[in-house]
Nucleic acid binder design. Structure first.
Lengths: 204, 204, 204, 204
DNA sequence: GATGAATGAGTCTTCATTCAT
DNA sequence: AATGAATGAAGACTCATTCAT
């Protein structure tokens, strides 16, 4: 039997925001060194919370990352809804979506930094991330495309695949910048993706 | 009777052979559980090689993965060259490329299994993989697009971004299937990606 | 990926006796504080061995204890064989066995100290211990009893149960002393157990 | 509308009831996985009680086990008194005691399951258990033996040691069955232990 | 007495990597 | 080049216990 002395050094935190503080601390640290390299001890310290408290809110450390990705994902999708809300034209919706996406994932403190770290090297559990973040996003785009097709604005394509092509295309475009494999700016990326994706590659 | 300490059970392998066996063993194991969960001990055992021997051929375990990815990547690009070789029309080249890509990454024993494992959980060092595998691939596509533009077959787009959109679009389309988030078959994917990517989304 | 620096501080140990040193160190430490409170770090340090080396020889820390118990058990059984070897009379064999057993488990550095610690409080995985240590021991006693019955020296009892009664009786007699619940000395215990066990409780 | 913060979902339990539920829950869980592996969280949940409530009734988790062992022990000794009450002959008392003991500790839901768990692995703090459960029991047997000696029914042995031999002998006989190291039934065990213990091993 | 979120000390274990042979 | 035992840094995680409400 282990004896626990448990002398308390600091005041107990208010229960409600403990989870919030953990997430914020984890985000801040991970945004610099990548989530894999953010230790639970460090996260707890920055959150002014006991290390064990992390495990009152998340089953494992990885669950914390997934939670963060999910939260970020919801923020993206929320922002997206707004960016698209004013428009009734599906075409314009897609255009806005592209702009919003590229800007969002290009800004400082984006989720890629959290996942990969500013100086890549961290390993990532891709599968769960894809499940949490990609699925709902594709579905959203899919809906817009479906609408566009119904209204005769878009050609009669498979909306799921078309949505995947757009999202995948945007992501790789961004990732290449992130990993310094390309040097176009966000605005150029936006313009070009709109151009290619909406107009197709073929001339004439 | 003289005791011989160096009685060998099996014939000594040629160095090249040893490396090959290590790579093959690593591939086989990783294809099931993902590279992260394939330990050096397990790889060595399966390759009938001492654990230390791995380090005569690869500086680190990660180098082994990168080597495997690179090898796979070269196989893809090689196959691609063939698939494209007969064609002079850039448009047909792209069409062939799409078909080849989807089929290659959809077949059993594909590299995704090695990287991610059949069942999620493995962590991946995306940065190097992207560098090794994506970079050259984008460049290849970029070349074809550039050629198509020069010949007036393609519209005047940024070829690097256009290439990224295609590759990213194909990858996400495949990944969704891989993670069971979509249920289209390879053939439909090929047809639709060709359609969307080459013709664009807009009607008329 | 965790990077390992692995700067070596001390010379590598000769492979053969690494296991021996670990076991000896574990025994010495556990004999004082009980196995549960002997940390792997402490054991490794005392054995002048890397902590990880423990796991080259034992799958878990508990396996190390079981190994020690087994080794101790074999020592007991070995000593027992000697103590019994000279005798041909099963009755004398049992008498010798009782004396040997009590003395062995009463001496300084006995296995109870290792398991429970001198100042009890440690928790113990009894099931495995019983399996490793008790089973063979009961079988040994059983053999002697069986022989005695065959020779007409012993009454016709179930030898397994009779053996269990003897071993269990000796153990509890010792354990009560160990936990300071009784104050008879070893010699008295030996004499009385012989007396009761061989002659029975009933008078006349 | 007034909000009532203290709307209770279920009626508040009486303190005694709470304690009872905790003990019952702990017993039920421990009977499956062993007390060590029954966490306070799990016990509380099963008892429909807050985790902290356990500590209103027991100083530590181990105290809970000791309480359970003590309760069980009292049940044994109580049953024993009854089984022995009718008899005036010490010899018959011992005979009844043996039968009662074996039957009690052989029935489903016995304390061994709680302590060790149905499948091995749990660790046990033997010292306190022995103190709580064994001590009083040995004393009880000791009393009977002392009486028997006084009445000339038993030979003149050290009653404490003789009692230890009996209890230890019974326990190991049972434990071997519990751990599947022997296959005799309860009735055979009873008969044989009576036979051996009372009549001794020696023939003639 | 009851609640349950917060606490944090404590340690086993992993496994890539090294290097003497 | 091959061997394989030795190395050790590194950290996630458990869970009994506390205490403010």
């Amino acid at each position: 039997m282990k004896s626990r002395s448990n002398t308390r050094k600091t005041a107990r935190q208010s229960p409600a925001d403990t989870k919030r503080r953990i997430v914020d601390a984890a985000f801040a640290i991970a945004a610099t060194k990548g989530f894999e390299h953010a230790t639970t001890a460090e996260i707890a310290k920055r959150a002014s919370v006991a290390e064990g408290s992390i495990y009152n809110h998340f089953r494992t450390k990885d669950d914390l990352l997934i939670y963060m990705v999910g939260e970020y994902s919801r923020a993206v999708l929320g922002g997206l809804s707004d960016a698209v809300a004013g428009e009734s034209d599906p075409l314009r919706k897609i255009e806005n979506l592209i702009a919003f996406h590229i800007r969002f994932f290009t800004q400082e403190g984006n989720i890629f930094q959290v996942i990969y770290g500013k100086r890549p090297g961290a390993k990532v559990q891709m599968a769960r991330i894809i499940r949490v973040a990609i699925g709902p996003y594709v579905s959203l785009i899919e809906g817009i495309i479906r609408e566009g097709i119904a209204r005769g604005k878009f050609r009669n394509v498979n909306p799921r695949i078309a949505a995947s092509v757009l999202l995948g295309g945007m992501q790789l475009t961004i990732l290449q910048r992130f990993f310094n494999l390309a040097d176009y700016g966000p605005d150029e990326a936006i313009e070009q993706i709109r151009n290619v994706y909406l107009g197709g590659l073929k001339s004439g």
